[in-house]
Amino acid sequence: MKGFTIILRRELAGLYFSPVSWFLLAATLLYNGFFFLTMLQASGGEVNLALSAMHQGPLWFLLSFLAPLLTMRMISEEGRSGMLEFLLTAPVTDAAVVLGKLVASTVFLVVAWTSVPLYALLCQFLGAPPDWGQVATQWLGVAFVATLFSGIGLVASAASATPLFAAFLAILANLLLLVLPLATGFVRGPWREGAEWVRDKIDVQAHFQGSFLTGAIDSAHLVFYAAWIGLVVFLAVRLLESKRWAR
């Protein structure tokens, strides 16, 4: 896709040359270190258990906030500064602009989370080897989740006039995506079946836990994530296109 790699490189450079990003990276390292140590102690030194625990609460909480902070400026700020007009009159497609930004954010998030597999490597050196197959699938799953949350962030950024509002919208959407499946458990009576059907379609955590977390790669779960990512990318491209119609 024309221009994708050029946009991706620029966005990555923008992320890695920004002091804020390095602050976020450092904060993530501390966050991961604290929780991994806590989980490791709570599991009695069982590395695989600690790793699994890391990919439940801490992962989702971190990505729900970190992805919006990374993506909030990517479209809304460029709209304000006029850079969007520059990009959208350059010989690159709207989809290349969105995908370049999406992949840049995903790469940053995955790199930030890679400290967890590094802790696993440290445990290996210390004589407690983890299940590397499981670590690899968990890492792959994190890449899918990071892509999805980055996509949601880009949709919010494209729909908002200011980065702060974009971050607020994206965090809200991420939390809703995590909380709504839990809420369906409270539905009773004739609506229960429908609520469960909806939960099955939106429960990103359950699809992660049913596949990547356990070390299994199931095509059904891959398709589930691919469909969600496709949807948010489509929305982001359409919203970007709608900027052309705004005055």
């Binding site: 620029r10 923008g14 040359f17 920004s18 500064s81 006029g82 850079m83 007009e85 520059f86």
Partner: peptide, 10 residues
């Protein structure tokens, strides 16, 4: 060249 000169300031 749009009126608001589009440049990455950083």
């Amino acid at each position: 060249l749009p009126e608001a000169v589009p440049l990455y300031r950083d």
